[in-house]
Structure formats: structure tokens, C-alpha cells
């Protein structure tokens, strides 16, 4: 194995971290509400576009843009939950899922209708790319920032979920959503908090994505969303560690199918079918994902 193998490892780490950030939000919402929030990918897009607003119109630098966009997106996430999902809390689960699908379509097409079809990017001075060449290995500061930030955000979230009272309440609700309100915990507040955290992470993912791949359009969230959803499920949806790991795994699978494919004579044209087939196999072997716990059904 030569150096380019290591290079691919870094490539995979970058892509995987981005998927992981989006997958985290999917997983948290699912854990608390058992809702596949299909609008999540489009919230990710919205976060990236808010980054354009902050950096181009408000002329903010990188860190304030990231924070402001995360806050605004969190507000959007809570609004969506309040307006579109909350009234359906006692309806059939699938009506909520379809509503989420509708909210996603509305966000992406509304964005297209209101802002036009031109692709966007961030100003050049936003995050100046520097490439470090370490013994034939090319690493840019952007890659490092993305990977580090993703891990920091994940650890922060993990600590919130594991160590704080709010986090405990979240886990409790996902464990038993009928008993917890009886203990004096406000279900609405916890759900709102979950949405705020999940969507803020999606916004962070969106801005980092926009930095790494600076061509933004209103449909950018669709594919990322579907893929992150798959990552979250493979990791075991409902578990933050699983989601993060699933995201990283998806990144590695996508990159290494191309890398290893050339040794066995498979062209990179087969990347998508093979990547998805691999994930399918994981699901068949472990039907509830890597970290998922099979919910015992009471009979």
C-alpha cells in the first residue's frame, strides 16, 4: 500500500465526517419521536444557504457565520416541529413521515422559487485554503478543520446526551414516551430541544459542506439527506454513536470502493451499486444496525 492509500483515508475521513454530522440529526429526532425526518437534508441545505446570507450579505467571518447559521437553523427546526409535526403527534406515524417529506420538498423548491437557479458559494476570504504537503501527502487546512470540528461537535453532543439532565430526559423519552411526562418532564420542551440540536448540527454540516464543496444549490440537501439517512440506519438509528459511526462508515465505503476496486478490476462506475449492496449486507446481518438495540415487542 502506497501513500495514496493514506491519502484516501483522509479523503474518507472528511466525507465521512460530513455525512456523520447530518446523520446525527436524523438519529436524534428518530430516537425521540420515532420519526424519519425526511426534511432533514433540506434543513442542511437551509443551513448552508444561511451561511451565504451571513457571509455575503452580513459580511461575517467564518466562526460567527457558523454560530449564527446554527442558531437560525435551530429556530427553523423548532418552528417546523411546532407547526408541522406537533399537531400530528397522535396521528399515524406514517402521516408524520409524509408530512416531513412534504416539508422537505417545500423547503427546497421554496428556496429555488425565492432565490433563483444560480449556484452559490462563499466569499473567497471566508476560509482561505492552504495546502500542506507532507511527504507527498496533500492535506488542506479545510480538511483538518472539517474533521476536527465534526469530532468536536459530536463529542459535545454526546456529552449533552449522556451527562446532562436534558440529555437524560431525551434518552428517557426515547425509552418510554408515556412514562416520562408523568415524571414531570415536559415532553414538548425535550422534543423542541432535540430538534434544535439536530438541526443546528445539520446547519454546521451544511456550512462545512459548502466550504469543502463550494457549489450550493437548493437541491443539494436531497442526496446528502438520503445518504445520511442510510448512514443513520446502518449505524443503528436512535443512537448518536451509531449515527456518527454510520456516517463515517458511509464515507469510507464510498471512497474505498473506488480505491480498492481498481485492484480487483472493478471500475469506479460501479461505486454506487456496490456501496449500497455492502450497506444492505450489513443490514441483513445486523437487522437493527451496528448500535441499534432490537426493540422487543410486547405481545
Amino acid at each position: 500500500m502506497d501513500l495514496s492509500f493514506l491519502q484516501q483515508f483522509i479523503n474518507a475521513l472528511q466525507l465521512g465526517s460530513l455525512y456523520a454530522l447530518v446523520a446525527l440529526g436524523y438519529s436524534m429526532v428518530y430516537g425521540v419521536l420515532l420519526l424519519i425526518n425526511f426534511a432533514h437534508g433540506d434543513i442542511f441545505m437551509f443551513g448552508a444557504f444561511l451561511g451565504v446570507f451571513c457571509s455575503m450579505t452580513l459580511k461575517l467571518p467564518f466562526v460567527p457565520t457558523l454560530l449564527l447559521s446554527m442558531i437560525l437553523t435551530a429556530l427553523l427546526g423548532m418552528t417546523i416541529e411546532r407547526v408541522a409535526y406537533k399537531p400530528l403527534r397522535h396521528a399515524s406515524r406514517l402521516s408524520v413521515v409524509i408530512t416531513a417529506l412534504g416539508v422537505g420538498l417545500l423547503l427546497e423548491n421554496g428556496m429555488l422559487a425565492l432565490t433563483g437557479a444560480d449556484p452559490r458559494n462563499y466569499p473567497e476570504e471566508f476560509l482561505v485554503t492552504t495546502v500542506y504537503n507532507i511527504g507527498g501527502l496533500s492535506i488542506s487546512n479545510v480538511k483538518i478543520i472539517i474533521i476536527v470540528l465534526a469530532f468536536v461537535l459530536f463529542l459535545g453532543l454526546y456529552l449533552i446526551v449522556q451527562r446532562t439532565k436534558w440529555g437524560m430526559a431525551m434518552r428517557a423519552i426515547s425509552y418510554d414516551k408515556f412514562a416520562v411526562p408523568l415524571m414531570g418532564v415536559s415532553q414538548n420542551q425535550i422534543i423542541a430541544l432535540t430538534f434544535a440540536l439536530g438541526t443546528a448540527l445539520a446547519a454546521a454540516g451544511g456550512i462545512l459542506w459548502g466550504v469543502a464543496f463550494p457549489v450550493l444549490n437548493p437541491y443539494m440537501g436531497m442526496r446528502v439527506g438520503w445518504k445520511a439517512f442510510i448512514a443513520a440506519v446502518v449505524g443503528g438509528i436512535g443512537d448518536v454513536r451509531g449515527a456518527f459511526l454510520g456516517g463515517l462508515l458511509l464515507g469510507f465505503v464510498e471512497i474505498f470502493v473506488v480505491e480498492l476496486g481498481q485492484y480487483v478490476g472493478i471500475s469506479s462506475t460501479w461505486r454506487d451499486p456496490i456501496a449500497f449492496a455492502l450497506l444492505l449486507i450489513i443490514l441483513v446481518v445486523r437487522p437493527t444496525g451496528l448500535f441499534g438495540v432490537a426493540r422487543r415487542q410486547k405481545v
Binding site: T57, L114, R120
Partner: peptide, 15 residues
């Protein structure tokens, strides 16, 4: 055409 409403706030590089 609604695209003018938000486009100025989310300018593309050519704008």
C-alpha cells in the same frame, strides 16, 4: 417570478 425576493439576500457570485 418570485426569485427576486430572497435572491438579493443570498447573492450568487455573479450578482
Amino acid at each position: 417570478d418570485f426569485s427576486g425576493i430572497l435572491a438579493p439576500f443570498f447573492p450568487s457570485p455573479s450578482m
